[in-house]
Design a protein around this nucleic acid. Structure first.
Lengths: 150, 150
DNA sequence: CCAAAATAAATCGTTCGCGATATAATCGCA
DNA sequence: TGCGATTATATCGCGAACGATTTATTTTGG
């Protein structure tokens, strides 16, 4: 064959051919699937992600949470204040470097992990995919993210 | 071997193993890559998606746009009002059924398509992927979205 | 040692995104 | 026909999310 069938500019401009739109809409779909599960925990989806990050590693700074979650302090600060108001975390200035704020789980915050332990099962269910397939797709999307942020 | 190594509940609770988080963060990454390109058009990323949907098919109702974009009227109405204020679209009540609002491109809105035609190239570039690979990944994620919304 | 640069969070204004609810128009059926 | 149910959009309140800016602290170079 002479050459691959490159997509026409017409084809390129169709919404359903956009990788970004697939991701955008899949993200909304995830949010909707999580909603009823997280309502049980009185957490929003982004708040849940912050808690997961803290359950994995307690006592992080706002900056290190932001790096892991790819979020800015302008997003995290208000969220963390809400989690603090709910009693899940404590925010304290670092003694050694007063610029930094250390985020720590409270007993309540740690306890929530138990209730949350069933959430991943429910989500895995909703994907309708095998664990190995999920892992592969996740890996590909993480690689894409890395390319995009390069 | 006796059985597959099922992921432990500990492993399941790590942020980097979450498919949803890969998608969540890839979505943010896309938003950031689009930002400088869309600044040229004075459009936000969601506004751009609406315009793409209209360039593909003009004269749609709010409801049909919502179906295609997976968005509620409570999200679309304010967005469409902004696009109207910018002069890209017109919103008019359907004569035959006054409940519906028809969204139509203005001349300005149609003209913007030219300027936008270079955007997909820039994005494709940033993904660092072959068109065929992009198409495959897009397909898989669309299938995932369908499972989630089922 | 101290002023300038760098760093970490927080604040502000704007836009998205949703659920719940309101409003208005149309439909269905008794 | 007419009135209750359904449908389409809009409104409201709240929580993300970001860029630009501010404030406070620390680091660095002279």
């Amino acid at each position: 064959m002479a050459k691959a069938n490159l997509p026409s500019s017409e084809e390129l401009m169709k919404l359903d051919n956009f990788l970004c739109f697939a991701i955008y809409s899949a993200n909304h779909a995830f949010t909707r699937v999580y909603k009823p599960l997280l309502d049980e925990l009185d957490l929003t989806y982004p708040q849940y992600l912050v808690m997961v990050a803290l359950w994995e590693k307690d006592d992080q700074t706002v900056g290190s949470l932001g790096e892991k979650l790819f979020l800015e302090s302008s997003t995290l600060t208000p969220m963390l204040k809400r989690l603090e108001a709910m009693g899940h975390i404590l925010r304290t200035r670092d003694k050694a470097d007063e610029r930094q704020v250390r985020v720590q789980l409270t007993e309540t915050g740690r306890a929530l992990r138990e209730k949350a332990s069933r959430v991943p099962i429910g989500i895995a269910d909703a994907t309708g995919m095998e664990p190995a397939e999920v892992a592969r797709l996740k890996q590909e999307i993480a690689a894409l993210r890395a390319s995009l942020l390069r």
